[in-house]
Design a binder for these strands. Structure first.
Lengths: 213, 213
DNA sequence: GTCTATAACTCGATAGAC
DNA sequence: GTCTATCGAGTTATAGAC
């Protein structure tokens, strides 16, 4: 049954082409400009053909979210093996912002467009990609706590969410109103990171060696 | 010419009705659901009539942004007369988050929807509403600096932008994926505010009295 | 199995009758 | 000043020809 396999391969190929075309449209024209007609034009098939591979425009958008988030992870992963949890958090922030600034439309689709898309990667379940990424930060704060560099009553999960919110604030403002902001994204990130980590890690429990400046 | 004045009043009344109907739709169904037809239905006029009062749907959206931002200012203004700049910043943050959480769809329209709407209130000119609001924070940081509670080489404008980004991050994440976040918005805000202000106001230059905890 | 053609529905905006 | 009627373009999705 070699022909069946070939068919299967071709089918998957078209699926990839559709997703690639969709991604290109989103990146170049924004998510609002993504329509089934436009995708169909790009892959040179009739609009209806797309429905043989995807149930709806929504399903395509969700798949773009999943893949986009996977790409985001590639920017965060280099931080994981770093020994110092503080350094790890700084590298996470740097990677996060670098991803968002180099893929603004993808970032917008995943985190700023619609809760239903954000929910695709951040459902809150223990196995979803968002939880994995947050865990990278949670662990860092836990280690800081174990090392006595963080107040005993601090809640790592909460600090991680605040830390994430800070990064998200910087990049989403940069995406929506970069003209208004006078400070470059990277500068905002370092200022934010320094201030936050310096502030979160309370002076009382922080040995001199762990100081950020 | 009393009848002319009456006409004028009626015309303005309809304009208000249109805006009020539009605001209701945005608040209840979100900005995407805002259509000229729906507004026309709500005010019991034909769709074409709306174009006698507004050039386009866009112009209605922009007016909603301007009014929404005015309402935001009402939440921030109570902070202005406070003597202690640090306290002022805390109250600004509290008001900002309270506005966003009580008017999520309005907040989304102004700050998260489209740069062209955000630009309506944040053009970057010296007279726009956004600049005014940011000035509230800039002044607070300047005073902290004058009082020697902030490093001399710190840039108030930059700190304000970072401070604002932090608040925006918290509320926009809460709006887009509140299910994923385990921490309530108010708690995130106090954690963020404490950490940021504690971190921004560097230990070296900060007298004991100004400490946040 | 594949794809064309089209249904059935949105929308914003306008021309012209009254 | 307001309405009816409609244009033209957009959308998702499906029925049925090939």
């Amino acid at each position: 049954m070699g022909s069946t396999e070939r068919r299967q391969r071709q089918k998957e190929q078209l699926r990839e082409q559709i997703l690639e075309a969709a991604r290109t449209i989103v990146v170049q024209e924004g998510f609002d400009a993504l329509s089934m007609r436009k995708i169909a034009d790009a892959v040179e098939y009739a609009p209806a053909t797309l429905y043989l591979h995807f149930q709806s425009r929504d399903e395509i958008a969700r798949e773009l979210c999943v893949r986009g988030f996977r790409e985001l992870w590639n920017f965060l992963a280099p931080a994981a093996p770093l020994a110092d949890p503080l350094e790890r958090l700084r590298v996470v922030a740097e990677g996060y912002v670098r991803f968002a600034m180099s893929h603004p439309e993808t970032y917008r689709l995943i985190f700023m467009e619609d809760p239903k898309y954000t929910g695709t990667v951040l459902r809150g379940g223990p196995d979803d990609p968002g939880e994995q990424s947050l865990l990278l930060m949670v662990r860092a704060f836990e280690e800081l706590q174990e090392q006595g560099r963080l107040a005993k009553d601090a809640v790592p999960r909460r600090l991680s969410e605040v830390f994430w919110a800070g990064m998200h604030g910087v990049v989403s403002l940069k995406i929506t109103c970069s003209d208004f902001l006078q400070t470059p994204a990277e500068e905002m990130t370092t200022t934010l990171t320094r201030a936050l980590l310096d502030g979160l890690i309370s002076p009382a429990t922080r040995p001199r060696a762990a100081r950020l400046r």
